[in-house]
C-alpha cells in the first residue's frame, strides 16, 4: 500500500514538473505578448512612482541649491542657463529627436523602460541620450507603447570612445551594476584623472561627441600592453526623468 502511494506521489510529481516546464516554455514563446500585457496595466502606476521619486530628488537638490551662496550661485545660474540653451539648440539642430519619459528600471540588470514604442517610430538599435548630451544607451526591445533601453553600464555594452583633449582612442565597456571602464588605452598615452570621455563614433554604433563620463582612476601595469581606467559617470540613473531617442 505504502509503495503504491509512494509510486503515485513520484508519478504526480513528474507530471507537475512536466506541466511546469511546458508552461514556462509556452510563456517564453509568447513572452512579448505576455510582457506587453503586464506592462500595459503596470506602466501607468510605475510611471507615477518613478516621477514621484524624481520629484523628491529634485526638491532635495533645490533645497541644497537654496542654502548655498546666493551671489555665487546667481552668476552660475546665469551661466548654466545660457549653456543649457546653447546645448538644447545644438541638440535639435544636430539630431532628429523623440522625447520619452522613463518608467522603471529592471530589477536585476542595467536596463530601463521608456514610454515610447513602435507606435511612435522607435525601433531596435536607436540611441538614447539626455538633454545634456550624455549617452544613456541603446534601444534593445520595442513593444507597441514601450521600449527597453540597455544602459551603457550593461555588461553586454562596449563601444569606441575618445579620452581628453588629445582624443586618445579607447574602448568603453560596461561592467554591470552601473559601472563602466575604459580599456585598451595604449601604455604610451598619458591619461589623467578628470579627462572627459566621449563617444568617438568610430564603430558606427553611437554618433560622435556624446558624453560618457570622466576618468576617475587609472590602472597601469607594466606587464599589460594597455591601460585601463574607471569612468566616473555623468549619468545618474535614479535621477533621469526623461530621455531623447535619436531617430
Amino acid at each position: 500500500m505504502k509503495a503504491v502511494t509512494k509510486k503515485s506521489r513520484v508519478f504526480s510529481f513528474i507530471i507537475l514538473a512536466a506541466l511546469l516546464t511546458l508552461g514556462i516554455v509556452l510563456i517564453n514563446v509568447f513572452q512579448k505578448e505576455v510582457r506587453s500585457f503586464f506592462y500595459w496595466f503596470s506602466c501607468p502606476i510605475q510611471k507615477i512612482l518613478w516621477q514621484t521619486a524624481t520629484r523628491t530628488d529634485e526638491l532635495k537638490q533645490e533645497n541644497q541649491y537654496l542654502t548655498s551662496e546666493i551671489i555665487r550661485l546667481k552668476s552660475l545660474e546665469d551661466e548654466n542657463k545660457t549653456l543649457r540653451e546653447a546645448l538644447n539648440i545644438g541638440l535639435e539642430k544636430e539630431y532628429n529627436l523623440s522625447f520619452a519619459d522613463v518608467i522603471s528600471k529592471d530589477a536585476s540588470e542595467d536596463i530601463i523602460l521608456i514610454d515610447k514604442g513602435s507606435k511612435d517610430g522607435i525601433s531596435q538599435g536607436m540611441n538614447v541620450i539626455t538633454a545634456q548630451k550624455v549617452l544613456v544607451g541603446k534601444v534593445v526591445e520595442v513593444f507597441n507603447n514601450y521600449s527597453k533601453v540597455m544602459l551603457i553600464y550593461h555588461k553586454k555594452m562596449s563601444f569606441d570612445v575618445k579620452i581628453g583633449q588629445e582624443e586618445i582612442n579607447a574602448i568603453a565597456k560596461g561592467q554591470g551594476n552601473l559601472n563602466i571602464i575604459a580599456g585598451l588605452i595604449p601604455q604610451e598615452k598619458k591619461v589623467f584623472k578628470g579627462d572627459i570621455v566621449s563617444t568617438s563614433g568610430l564603430e558606427g554604433v553611437f554618433p560622435e561627441g556624446l558624453l560618457v563620463g570622466k576618468i576617475e582612476e587609472i590602472t597601469k601595469n607594466d606587464i599589460d600592453p594597455f591601460q585601463t581606467a574607471k569612468i566616473e559617470k555623468y549619468l545618474n540613473v535614479s535621477e533621469i526623468k526623461n530621455v531623447f531617442i535619436i531617430l
Binding site: I24, V34, S42, A107, K148
Partner: peptide, 17 residues
C-alpha cells in the same frame, strides 16, 4: 517568481524556478 521574471529582462522562468 513569475512577476519578477515579467519585470526583468531575462527569459521568463528563472526566478520562478
Amino acid at each position: 517568481g513569475f512577476l519578477l521574471d515579467i519585470f526583468s529582462s531575462h527569459l521568463i522562468g528563472l526566478y520562478m524556478v
